[in-house]
């Protein structure tokens, strides 16, 4: 078997900076979808304990070192950057299915709110929050960490999401420059 070169969803694009806003690709080592079987929630909680994580409440995420768990639906969460084997949940490897985009800067929430129709200000969406929400017409997972926002979209839409966020950053930065 020849060794193939794996490309990231946004390979070939360089980080973009407009004013104080910056956009870059996040590459996750692995993304596992966890869906606990009925009545197995306690067993799953035990399996997650060594990772320092627990099954997240709706609209939240938790971080432990490089590992992260994000709520993505009813009885569903994404475990990022950590392996897990347990018979208590349906586990699906989705590592290659998603693209990650990181948006940082003091006006990041204002920029992202032009595309995502929910309140992303820190009063309503502090670090540790996560949401399933549309980014324009793309289904996305929006996460807020201490360092800024991370947005996951389907891999096939990586470049559309990148272009739309980059254009929005430019507009927000231009408006800031006029002040």
């Amino acid at each position: 078997m020849p060794e193939l070169i794996a490309k990231t969803p946004l390979s070939g694009l360089w980080p973009v900076t407009h004013g104080a806003l910056s956009l870059s690709e996040v590459v996750y080592d692995s993304i596992l979808s966890l869906a606990p079987f009925a009545g197995q929630e306690k067993v799953l909680t035990k399996a997650l304990k060594p990772l320092g994580l627990a099954f997240p409440a709706p609209n939240t995420l938790a971080v432990s070192g490089v590992a992260r768990i994000v709520w993505t639906g009813r009885d569903q969460a994404f475990l990022i950057n950590a392996p897990l084997a347990t018979p208590s949940a349906a586990i699906t490897d989705q590592s290659d299915g998603w693209a990650g985009l990181r948006l940082e800067g003091p006006m990041a929430a204002e920029a992202l709110m032009r595309l995502v129709p929910i309140d992303l200000r820190s009063s309503a969406f502090p670090p540790g929050s996560a949401a399933r929400a549309p980014l324009n017409h793309m289904n996305a997972v929006v996460m807020r960490l201490e360092s800024g926002f991370e947005v996951m979209v389907f891999r096939s839409m990586a470049r559309s999401a990148w272009t739309e966020i980059a254009e929005t950053m430019q507009r927000v930065a231009a408006r800031q420059a006029l002040r």
Partner: peptide
Amino acid sequence: PLCGPRDRREF
């Protein structure tokens, strides 16, 4: 009930 108040275009 899970996500909170959301815009009609999401549904």
